[in-house]
């Protein structure tokens, strides 16, 4: 088994959004460079990781992919706790998945840490002829709600890498800022493997090195 635990930061990120918008394929594209048109529906929660570099630091993203169907909300919302980032995904060809973004934001407000970084992701940008949500509209909505915004295609892989890079970089900035403010004594991020970062207290020292963060 791989032991790639040489990292400076471990960030927990969740993927949320309506059923069928392509959350699982975004994740498999980012973590394994795979896309599967017929991938099975996600039941409950699934998990994958990938390590990237930001500002010379090694950041490990622990990404939890959630089932989109309403019935699973009670199960999946438990995974928001401790998440420092969320990708809220809709399908640019399906208006209802965009209209539901507000409901998903409320889910996050109710269950996630208040400082969670949220990125609005319009997926399936390859479906140009079926587009039902304009880029402008989603961009404006994101700006009004303080979210970052990007359009992606897990199928042709456009913008998938930048999307994850961007949110992980943002999380890193917030965390390092918090750490600066908090001062060294209050537990600024140290370069040691397995430090789980939460935004409320820059370093969560209660977690053991190798364990999960939820």
């Amino acid at each position: 088994m791989s032991k790639d635990d040489e990292y400076d930061y471990l960030f927990k990120v969740v993927l949320i959004g309506d059923s069928g918008v392509g959350k699982s394929n975004l994740l498999s594209r980012f973590t394994r460079n795979e896309f599967n048109l017929d991938s099975k529906s996600t039941i409950g929660v699934e998990f994958a990781t990938r390590t990237i570099q930001v500002d010379g630091k090694t950041i490990k993203a622990q990404i939890w992919d959630t089932a989109g169907q309403e019935r699973y909300r009670a199960i999946t919302s438990a995974y928001y706790r401790g998440a420092v980032g969320a990708l809220l995904v809709y399908d640019i060809a399906k208006v209802s998945s965009y209209e539901n973004v507000n409901r998903w934001l409320k889910e996050l407000r109710d269950h996630a840490d208040s400082n969670i970084q949220i990125m609005l992701v319009g997926n399936k940008s390859d479906l140009k002829h079926l587009r039902a949500v304009s880029t402008e509209e989603a961009k404006n909505f994101a700006a009004e709600n303080g979210l970052t915004f990007i359009e992606t295609s897990a199928l042709d892989s456009s913008n998938v890498e930048p999307a994850f890079q961007k949110i992980l970089t943002e999380i890193y900035r917030v965390v390092s800022n918090n750490a600066l403010k908090a001062g060294e004594s209050a537990g600024a991020p140290k370069v040691n493997a397995g430090t789980t970062i939460t935004l409320n207290n820059a370093v969560d020292t209660s977690k053991k090195p190798s364990g999960g963060c939820c």
Binding site: I43, G44, V45, F47, I75, K207, K208, S210, G212, C214
Partner: peptide
Amino acid sequence: QKEGVEFIQFAFRWMNCLLMR
């Protein structure tokens, strides 16, 4: 316990789909 693995993280689907997945 040591690794922080919760049963719900893997067994939820086992119950939900009777191990069919």
